[in-house]
Design a protein around this nucleic acid. Structure first.
Length: 271
DNA sequence: AGAGGTACCTGGCAGC
DNA sequence: TGCTGCCAGGTACCTC
């Protein structure tokens, strides 16, 4: 479900309800996520004071005075604010009670997500330290992209989705950005010109900021912190549109697989 | 070092 | 209706 725009939408949805609050306790109903939810986390997070809710790549960072809670939504995770002790559903694995009748509730049917606790510097965290630049920052540009790609033979789509190259671009937005940049998803990353990388970097920034503005893409059941859906699926040009006419040239959209992931493109517009 | 495959897990859907 | 197989928005880790 969640790519960068969905995680950012979630962050914006929950932040006002969490910032400045003191965590009363964590209720873990199902501890086996991607990594087990540790007893240390449950113990250490109690009484922590939330200073801010930020994001790095697709990781949500709940920063407190005593440490940072690192949350990843995996493939099917979602967070929302619930009140009045609303009864948990079957996949509501964790509740974080923050007082004043407010609970942050984590739901994750596939359990690919993660809840981790760290008291070290975030820059040295093993999951965060090797990530590429944020795509919406100035550190991410066509030149950076071009330089990183020299000598690489893998498909541009896989390169674009490598979080160590640039953080936070998943399967939906990779297809969409390549369509906007007119680049064929199977083209070798090392054989794309600097100019085309400039176009691609712009397309990535454009597609992600538009998606954030529209509250993300809701394909199955994504919703922001208040349970509202995202609307970017209306703006999708190629993702999931196999056989439908390309919005630019009317050629039927094709589907292929790159690195075991479905990929959508227009065979006429993308070279 | 780079490229590709595997693993984690459940739910929904198409096809028989 | 009910079974089977396949697919799904992620990514660390393994092998070649």
């Amino acid at each position: 479900m969640p790519e960068l725009p969905e995680v950012e939408t979630t962050r914006r949805g929950i932040e006002p309800h969490l910032r400045g609050r003191t965590i009363q306790k964590l209720i873990v109903r199902q501890a086996s996520l991607r990594w087990p939810v540790s007893a240390t986390l449950v113990r250490r997070i109690k009484h922590a004071h939330i200073e801010q809710v930020s994001r790095r790549a697709k990781y949500l960072l709940i920063c407190t005075n005593s440490g940072t809670l690192v949350i990843h939504l995996g493939m099917s995770g979602s967070l929302r604010i619930v009140r009045d002790n609303a009864p948990p559903g079957p996949h509501d694995h964790i509740d974080m009670l923050v007082g004043d009748n407010t609970t942050l509730r984590y739901r994750d049917p596939r359990r690919f997500g993660a809840w981790l606790w760290t008291e070290d510097k975030l820059e040295s965290h093993p999951l965060l330290c090797k990530l590429g630049p944020e795509p919406l920052s100035d550190n991410f540009s066509g030149s950076y992209f071009f330089n990183r790609s020299r000598g690489r033979k893998l498909a541009i789509k896989s390169f674009l989705m490598d979080s160590h190259v640039v953080a936070g671009i998943g399967n939906i937005y990779a297809s969409e950005a390549l369509f906007r940049a007119g680049i064929h998803p199977s083209r070798a990353a090392g054989r794309i010109s600097r100019q085309r990388y400039t176009k691609l970097a712009d397309a990535v920034k454009q597609v992600l900021s538009e998606a954030i503005r529209q509250g993300g893409t809701t394909l199955r059941d994504f919703s922001n912190g208040e349970g509202k859906p995202g609307y970017f699926q209306r703006s999708l040009n190629v993702y999931g549109k196999t056989g439908e006419p390309c919005p630019v040239c009317k050629t039927p959209i094709r589907e292929t697989r790159t690195g075991q992931r479905s990929t959508f493109y227009c065979p006429h517009c993308q070279r």
